[in-house]
Design a protein around this nucleic acid. Structure first.
Lengths: 239, 239
DNA sequence: GAGTGGTCTAGACCACACA
DNA sequence: GTGTGGTCTAGACCACTCT
């Protein structure tokens, strides 16, 4: 008699086994999974149970299913990131991905406020990236990205840091950003923020603190974005 | 041969029929629905198809299912509203619902910025509620709520306007708030905001503009909240 | 035409709630 | 014990994609 606490439905167990294959790189982004019947046969469950696991993973944006074609591992390309993780939109007009300019890349130790959410020691090494992001040449965001060096070896040897860093994390280190939590506050622009955003010191800015996690829900990236919201807003839909 | 465009899966049609019963009050909040087999028999579909419709409605927070007990229409009680629509949380400590004090209730006509999202004419009548909300006696939010008079007849005859207005909308007018969209910006506290929030004029505030919709996705309520985010933050989880 | 996911059905058994 | 939702299975047919 197994305890009720430890019980997991079969489809959840199947889901866990499939996620493990995403984590270990058996099925890299873009790859087609075997068909439902092949998976069912291999995992010794019915096709309906495999489907329930695949549907759950699809609703978490880990997979993409196309009728008639197959089931594919999600690729962290721009349009997906834009939709899933980037919530700043122009007040009017179409949504676009901002251009970015790196100000500084340094190797340092985390502050207490950085170490705690990233589950790191104060003596651990981290990369700190500072960059400005712009819509149509107008600077909108100043942001600081903090990454543990242990998971991003050789970051400083890259020629450039691309606009879409989540695609980089995936391609260079095989790290998939699967979920994140954001905390928003209103703050005043510091002299430094103001100079980068070309706005008066003391201008109200939207501060977004994001903690991003990988497929196994381990914290991977901490990001502090200060945003000028004169022409853009942060959009949320609640169901 | 029917056109592919007009096609809707059977479970989606079932879902639409069930939602109609929520809208017309056949099944009010808190009521138990018939069992899956009874619904299947009545609607002439299989129990599995009914289940798919019920699961979809459950994931939209319209229904609550309890193993062994039954399926129930969601009640807009505090804890649910807190979880579903209220995203301001103390930086540390437990989540609570703020107290509120109504400053003013007036009947007026909408501004252009109010009329458009509510799909109203500029000459329509609207209620405008202004109130302050506090955590532990500290004022945190000043907000303005705009409601079309046609859908909320007699609002001015109420003795008091309760803290949880969505519960009021449901009980008094049978209107269920099922979804909403929020836009966030950082602004400076006006003299008026500052006096209510007991903060300096010019203090950075988080402005939340919310458009709330009913079960049929019709806009119902427009709300502008100005929030002091020194000790609280707006939390978002992204999957 | 062959292969894929999408829908629909039917039935079995389990876990839980309540009287 | 009875009735509910939760899980699991098996099979059928449809719509779509690619060759």
């Amino acid at each position: 008699m197994e305890p009720a606490v430890g019980f997991k439905p079969l489809y959840a167990q199947v889901k866990d086994r499939l996620i493990r294959r995403l984590v270990d790189g058996t099925w890299p982004p873009g790859m087609a999974l075997p068909s439902e019947f092949e998976l069912a046969q291999e995992l010794k469950v019915s096709q309906g149970t495999v489907r329930k696991a695949l549907d759950a993973m699809t609703s978490e944006n880990l997979l993409v299913r196309r009728q008639g074609r197959g089931t594919f591992v999600t690729v962290p390309e721009e349009s997906r990131i834009l939709f899933q993780f980037f919530h700043l939109k122009p007040d009017s007009g179409t949504v676009t991905f901002p251009q970015s300019t790196v100000l500084k890349l340094s190797k340092t130790t985390p502050t207490a406020a950085e170490a705690e959410p990233l589950a790191l020691s104060r003596r651990a090494k981290v990369w700190r990236i500072e960059r400005v992001r712009s819509f149509a040449d107008a600077p909108i965001i100043v942001e600081t990205i903090t990454l543990p060096v242990t998971r991003f070896e050789g970051l400083d040897t890259l020629e450039t840091i691309p606009n879409n860093v989540y695609e980089l994390y995936s391609k260079r280190w095989g790290i998939t950003i699967a979920q994140s939590e954001e905390r928003l506050k209103a703050i005043s622009a510091s002299a430094r923020d103001a100079s980068h955003l070309k706005c008066p010191e003391g201008e109200p800015l939207l501060l977004i603190s994001r903690l991003a996690r990988d497929l196994e829900a381990q914290p991977v990236e901490l990001r502090w974005s200060r945003c000028l919201t004169r022409t853009v807003h942060y959009g949320v839909k609640l169901r």
